[in-house]
Design a protein around this nucleic acid. Structure first.
Length: 489
DNA sequence: TTAGGGTTAG
């Protein structure tokens, strides 16, 4: 907010500033410059009489402030007149993309109750964006869907786009698809969201088909659609390389700049499909080679394919070229060691992480080490490593140790790993199976029997074999998340 | 004259 001296300074500039204030607000590069324009708007009376100028000010404040949500709300409450729907919707947008998207809902409820805002087709996209960013997106998305139907705007392409996104992040692909199919006039946004909704839910062939349709009906795919479809091509069981090449050709034909994100997506697509030469060619052709992203995709992809030496060579080349490795690079390099069991090389890398690269090991780095130690039969060392980790252990890492115990017959360590796994996931009956087999192999039949009784006590032996796969092969969550109450009043 | 989409490596 403008200070008294700024207001005083603005009074002097009153006449000359008046015509261009809203344009000036757009061009301000610093909050201080903006506060000066704001002050001028106050003294000229422009803020009170011109909703357009006030709106530009709000957008400019949100863009410049380190806390856009607070800035937008502060400006709203300081206004001399009632804010218009543009400003309120803009504030909703700011809240929806803030670190606390849930704040959009009490704000919206207040506006509805007081009648300050009639929700329209610019309101729902922001509310749905906030809903999609909640830990449990489904209940609010459903409530907003119902509300949009009541307002008769659920078929608007941007509203539908928000619904598709909300259902997709909630894992409700069929609902997302139904909304998408019902949109009479689709736009590039809703196509893009559909492509990424597939890609992100493991429906790679569907993502490729949606992309194909998007291009066929004449929409220009942007970076997000391209990155999503390339990700699908990288993971698809069949036809991924062909489609990926086609996408790459399309990018070249349209003269699109291949930056880090698309370059990384292309490399990932090629290397995951075994087209290693082409993956290297993309990396070598990238203009921005000093960022680790694209290197990481290639290193990890090579490691994934069992080309450990090439992955480690590339890791060394990266350092020679002065590209700083990050945490992901080290996951790739360590997993390259993992496949052929290069324990010494991995130990050296692990030690150098903090010392040479300033990277604190995370769960995935520890995971690689535990895997390597476990496969070498160094079970105690693996257990020590898990217990001394700076980060929280998960069931994956204890599971790696348990598997190693299974292969090397370490019953006592297996028992401790099982206890830790069951603490984290009491319903994991695979733990009992592994432990039971270990006891049986050692001829400890009393322990096998005891374990069986424990399983019965925990009702683990009679878990029904429910399937989460629908008739059409789509994966859906079998149950709704717990009710969360109506956040829309 | 002001607003709406989406993304890569592990």
């Amino acid at each position: 907010m403008p200070s008294a001296p700024l207001v005083a300074a603005a009074v002097g500039a009153r006449v000359s500033l008046r015509p261009n204030l809203s344009l000036l607000a757009d061009r301000c590069a610093t909050p201080r410059a903006l506060a000066r324009v704001h002050a001028a708007m106050i003294v000229s009376g422009r803020l009170a009489e011109d909703a357009f100028a006030a709106s530009r000010l709000l957008t400019a404040y949100a863009a410049l402030s380190p806390d856009p949500a607070a800035a937008a709300l502060a400006l709203l409450s300081s206004l001399p007149c009632a804010p218009n729907s543009f400003m309120l919707n803009t504030t909703l947008r700011v809240l929806a993309s803030s670190p606390d998207p849930a704040a959009a809902f009490p704000f919206f409820s207040r506006l509805r109750v007081t009648g300050a805002l009639a929700p329209g087709r610019h309101t729902f996209p922001f509310l749905l964006k906030a809903a999609a960013r909640l830990p449990l997106p489904l209940p609010v998305t459903e409530q907003l869907h119902a509300l949009a139907v009541r307002h008769g705007i659920h078929l608007d392409a941007y509203v539908a786009n928000g619904l598709v996104r909300g259902y997709s992040v909630a894992g409700r692909l069929r609902a997302a698809r139904r909304v998408f199919d019902g949109v009479p006039e689709r736009n590039a946004a809703v196509y893009t969201t559909m492509v990424s909704a597939y890609a992100q839910n493991g429906r790679h062939e569907d993502a490729m088909a949606a992309f194909d349709e998007m291009v066929r009906v004449g929409f220009e795919p942007g970076g997000a659609a391209l990155a999503s479809v390339l990700s699908a091509c990288a993971r698809s069981a069949s036809g991924g390389l062909e489609m990926g090449r086609h996408v790459h050709d399309l990018m070249v034909a349209r003269g699109m700049a291949v930056g880090t994100i698309l370059g990384t997506a292309l490399i990932d697509m090629y290397v995951k499909n075994g087209a290693i030469k082409e993956a290297f060619a993309v990396l070598d052709g990238l203009p921005e080679r000093h960022v680790p992203g694209a290197w990481n995709a290639l290193i990890s992809g090579l490691a994934h394919h069992g080309h450990s030496e090439r992955a480690l060579d590339l890791f060394r080349r990266m350092q020679q070229e002065g590209v700083p490795p990050n945490a992901t690079t080290l996951v790739g390099a360590l997993s390259a060691c993992s496949h052929p069991g290069l324990l010494d090389e991995a130990r050296r890398l692990f030690r150098s992480m903090e010392k040479d690269f300033g990277i604190t090991p995370g769960i995935q780095h520890y995971g690689c080490m535990v895997d390597l130690l476990g496969r070498a039969g160094l079970l105690s060392e693996a257990e020590d490593m898990i217990r001394r980790m700076s980060c929280e252990a998960d069931t994956m890492i204890w599971g790696a140790l348990l598997t190693a115990c299974k292969n090397h017959g370490g019953i006592e360590i297996a028992e401790r790993a099982a206890v830790e796994m069951l603490k984290l996931d009491p319903s994991n009956h695979g733990v009992y199976v592994v432990l039971s087999n270990l006891y049986a192999e050692a001829g400890r039949w009393q322990d096998v029997d005891k374990l069986r009784k424990e399983m019965k006590g925990a009702r683990l032996s009679k878990i029904p074999g429910a399937s989460a796969v629908d008739g059409d092969g789509s994966l859906e969550q079998p149950e709704s998340p717990p009710p969360q109450g109506n956040v829309l009043v």
